[in-house]
């Protein structure tokens, strides 16, 4: 990861927040907060995203540490999968009693 760049405006650095709602469930992106360091990011994430729901765990990640695909990547990255139905597990019978998979 490169050295953090100075923020372009007077806002504090941005952190992405991931919340987990149950043991074993994935941490899912909830939103972002501003904070000057990790401890404050965790506290702000708790106050903004962790106080109402049934959150049991929080992750905060510096936004600048996230590498994202560009909009122009969307075609080459994702379109080929759309027509290849055989890549999806559509052709199996789901056993009785399974409601979520």
């Amino acid at each position: 990861m490169d050295a953090p760049a100075a923020p372009a405006d007077s806002q504090w650095p941005l952190w992405e927040v991931f919340t987990q709602e149950a043991q074993g469930a994935p941490h899912e992106h909830a939103g972002s907060v501003h904070a000057v360091d990790a401890e404050q990011a965790l506290q702000n994430a708790r106050d903004v995203f962790g106080r109402r729901g049934k959150v049991i765990s929080l992750w905060v990640v510096p936004t600048e540490a996230i590498v994202a695909s560009a909009p122009s990547d969307a075609g080459p990255f994702f379109d080929p999968g759309a027509e290849k139905a055989y890549r999806h597990p559509y052709f199996y019978k789901v056993p009785k009693g399974i409601r979520v998979y």
Partner: peptide, 8 residues
């Protein structure tokens, strides 16, 4: 001072 602290 900032929105997050306001909420806190």
């Amino acid at each position: 001072p900032i929105l997050e602290e306001d909420i806190a």
